[in-house]
Design a protein around this nucleic acid. Sequence first.
DNA 1: AGCACTAGTCAGCGACGCAAACTAGTCGGG
DNA 2: CCCGACTAGTTTGCGTCGCTGACTAGTGCT
Lengths: 114, 114
Amino acid sequence: MTEDDVPTEWLRAVLPLAVLAVVAEEETYGYAVAQRLQAGGLGAVKGGTLYPVLNRLEAEGLLTSSWREGVGGPGRKFFAVTAAGRDSLDRRSAAWHTFTERAGGLLPDPRSTR
Amino acid sequence: MTEDDVPTEWLRAVLPLAVLAVVAEEETYGYAVAQRLQAGGLGAVKGGTLYPVLNRLEAEGLLTSSWREGVGGPGRKFFAVTAAGRDSLDRRSAAWHTFTERAGGLLPDPRSTR
DNA sequence: AGCACTAGTCAGCGACGCAAACTAGTCGGG
DNA sequence: CCCGACTAGTTTGCGTCGCTGACTAGTGCT
């Protein structure tokens, strides 16, 4: 019951930000990010969705990548956050926070189940 | 400073829900909804964006519409929420609430400006 | 007549999540 | 030895929807 399949528009809104946040926490690779996101309450993000996000973030200069041999399995593309990435993360997550508060203000009070 | 132009992906995530919420508060017409949204902190929603949303909500059976003569100006298409609409609003806004909490949990703590 | 404001509609565009298929490495079981 | 299952990442085509910009149309002011 931890998982009520997040609507795609909602995912669309936070995916890049969430991915950036996860990588900023610790240098990791795509597959691990997917598991982290699922554990974090966003749904099961498929490869065809996640990897393009990582590559876009890299193209924007917010992440850097390096290829490393896999311990038991294929090679892994590790991503690390850049200074610009950390900066963008902070600014955008602050903006996200105020946005969700404003949006929540328009919605009905969740405590009153009319 | 009340308005830092909301990214389109963010708007995309909440627009239908926010519009539904506004109409559920009080029976209104499109143009007034736009002003209400702007006052609520989402940006200036253009006609070409807003009206299709209203029409989709009506097509989904969450709103009903009726045409009325304008007092000083063109006629107005008034929208009212249906029972299904109110139900959908409650369920989806509750889901939105838990979603934003989860997403916020992945993001860096806004109080630490590193 | 011209402009501004109100009110709603429409066409084309681009971004991006999704489904599905594909390559490719490792491992365990039959 | 081959077949799945899991890991890891890529690619293609599709559909949704906000955006831009133009358009109709009613009212009122200059």
